[in-house]
Nucleic acid binder design. Structure first.
Length: 565
RNA sequence: GCGCCCGUAGCUCAGCUGGAUAGAGUAGUGGCUUCCGAAGCCAUUGGUCACAGGUUCGAAUCCUGUCGGGCGCGCCA
């Protein structure tokens, strides 16, 4: 519909330029917006105001010229000037209700597009260290990252969801020594407790399982506890497998799936880290100082250079990161989106610097803005009116599992995805737990369940409804409440497309809240199951279109759309 | 000190890449059910969009500065 009106305007502009009314050197950029106020019609354009200066005419005069030159359209009842020079367009019934027919025929596909043209995009998210249970910050990453994947798939991209396991760094040694200490019966307060040990009680569980000789079935391998307190290597492998499995179970319960689990250790095993180091040295952007090898990240906008290889010989964390991203590039992802916590913000410059150093030398043509980042701000967890500190090292933090158990998967996912990633988020556990019924997600699901309930009641009255036989009745949808819903439904495809482009799943959450609100309001003021068949058909069609849209939208958020509650 | 993010109703947050009179939820107040699900609806209270400049037809939105908050700034990851 927007396209249709844009065509009309462009046609009018062409005519006005051809007959000399408007100068030929103007470059109109026609945008069509949905109006917020129904007295402003259904759609509006600000084209006259943007042309005013170049055309040296008053905005309202230009608007009138455009309106007079508009070609006839069978979709509009009128176009009029308003305010400082807006052109408001009013749709006729047939054009306004066409969206219902479209939704009912497209079903689950309503809102999907081929904008991504099947191109490869990778979304890396969560990527938690396998050193403990996932906390609420990971939960935000999981909810946002997974929704971005769903949005991109919906927009026609070929999406790979990927989880990067940092299973090769110093933190894994800390994990192993922590488990070993627990095996020996030591607690975090003991004087022999490892300095950077993980203090959480889950370490006890790992130790017990290891000593009991249990077998862990992780994603890629099975590991059996050696029950040997002195076998450091065995403890280490077992602990990593154990915690990976735990994270996998949490993510599964959260409705999040990954296509690829990429191990940092694999980069070392396959020599990719060494290879990358060589490439960086060959690029000429490195130097030796104080026994360490440095990368001149200042050549690429960093405020100081960074150590690549420590004087003791090991690599700093960002070197395998660069190797990993070179690997992503080699795998053909023209777009890579890294969803991570804002506390990792400083890695962006380093990774991009490393990539550019290699790219420029080897002519890889990696864009300077590749990979893209979506950084979610911190989640503050409140309980009992006090902040719960999220600290892996302290061992005291709220886990995803806690939230799923207490609040439920749907509400947790909705809550964590419903806010812009750039904003900090306060997750009040008491509120979420005690006021479960007032959580917005139930409000949306309730609208869905209500329509389902209506459809069940329909047959009890020995009535029937079908999209096909109701098509002619749709023009009966002329009331304000109905038009509001029609307009909202019509906005859905462009909304999800924008959400995918901008990696902003929260806009979908807000949209659904509004749509559900419009529907609840309509439902309360109109009876649907009435004797008048044409009107009944029209209202049921509209309701079913709302249900379908809610179903599709909730699917993008990974939230279920129950038929009854 | 430097970098990134944020500052909108008592509280939690939206505000569609600059548009028309700034919106929701929640909290408060007052109503709605012989009838399709009251997990609902209706009405109402509540704003110097942190502050000051700038850009232009037009700014919560873009730019600059100030103040306030969060997160980074390691030869940790």
């Amino acid at each position: 519909m927007k396209d249709h009106i844009a065509e009309l305007i462009n046609s009018a502009l062409t005519q006005l330029i051809d007959n000399g009314t408007l100068p030929a050197d103007i470059t109109p950029r026609v945008t069509i917006d949905r109006t917020r106020d129904k007295s402003h019609g259904d759609l509006a354009s600000n084209i006259a105001m943007t042309l005013a200066k170049a055309a040296k005419k008053a905005p309202r005069d230009i608007a009138q010229l455009i309106i007079d030159a508009l070609p006839a359209s069978d979709k509009l009842t009128k176009a009029e000037i308003a305010g400082p020079g807006f052109i408001n367009f009013f749709l006729n019934e047939a054009a306004a209700t066409a969206i219902v027919t479209q939704i009912l025929s497209e079903g689950e596909k309503f809102g999907s597009s081929n904008a991504g043209t099947g191109q490869k995009v990778q979304v890396e998210f969560v990527s938690a260290n396998p050193t403990g249970p996932l906390h609420v910050g990971h939960g935000r990453g999981a909810a946002v990252g997974d929704s971005i994947c769903r949005l991109l798939k919906n927009a026609g991209w070929d999406v790979t969801a990927e989880f990067y396991y940092n299973d090769a760094g110093q933190q894994i040694n800390n994990l192993a020594t922590s488990v070993k200490a627990r095996i020996l019966g030591l607690g975090p307060d003991h004087e022999s407790w490892p300095e950077d040990g993980y203090r959480g009680d889950y370490i006890i569980d790992v130790a017990k399982s290891y000593m009991a000789g249990e077998t862990i079935a992780a994603e890629d391998k099975h590991v059996t506890g050696a029950a040997d307190a002195n076998n450091d290597e065995a403890i280490r492998d077992f602990a990593v497998a154990y915690l990976r499995r735990e994270q996998d179970l949490d993510l599964k319960a959260f409705g999040v799936d990954f296509d690829v689990y990429y191990l940092e250790s694999a980069l070392y095993e396959q020599g990719k880290v060494e290879e990358t180091v060589k490439q960086l040295i060959d690029s000429g952007h490195t130097y030796e100082k104080d026994g360490a090898l440095w990368l001149k990240t200042t050549d690429f906008g960093d405020d100081k250079d960074r150590v690549m290889r420590k004087s003791e010989g090991g690599y700093t964390y960002f070197v395998p990161d660069v190797a990993y991203h070179l690997n992503k590039w080699q795998r053909g992802f023209i777009r890579v989106i890294n969803e991570q916590g804002a506390d990792h913000h400083s890695t962006i410059t380093r990774v991009r610097a490393g990539l550019q150093a290699v790219s420029q030398t080897d002519n890889l043509n990696i864009p300077t803005t590749w990979p893209e980042y979506v950084l979610h701000q911190m989640v503050m967890v409140m309980r009992g009116g006090e902040e719960v500190k999220i600290s892996k090292r302290a061992g005291s933090y709220v886990t995803i599992r806690d939230l799923i158990d207490e609040v439920g998967k749907d509400a947790t996912r909705y809550f964590l995805a419903a806010r812009a990633a750039t904003s900090q988020l306060t997750f009040d556990i008491d509120l979420a737990v005690s006021q479960t019924n007032e959580n917005p997600v139930y409000y949306i699901q309730y609208a869905h369940a209500r329509v389902c309930s209506m459809m069940r009641k329909l047959s009890e009255n020995k009535w029937n409804w079908s999209a096909e036989t109701s098509a002619q009745s749709l023009e009966l949808l002329t009331e304000d409440g109905e038009k509001a819903i029609l307009n909202k439904l019509a906005a859905y495809p462009e909304l999800v497309k924008a959400a995918a482009n901008n990696c902003e799943p929260h806009t979908v959450a807000n949209y659904l809240r509004e749509l559900a609100g419009d529907f609840h309001s309509y439902y309360n003021s109109h009876k649907m199951l009435i004797e008048d068949k044409p009107l009944r058909d029209a209202r049921l069609s509209l309701s079913e279109a709302v249900r379908q849209t809610i179903n599709n939208g909730l699917g993008l958020l990974g939230v279920s759309a129950p038929e009854e509650m």
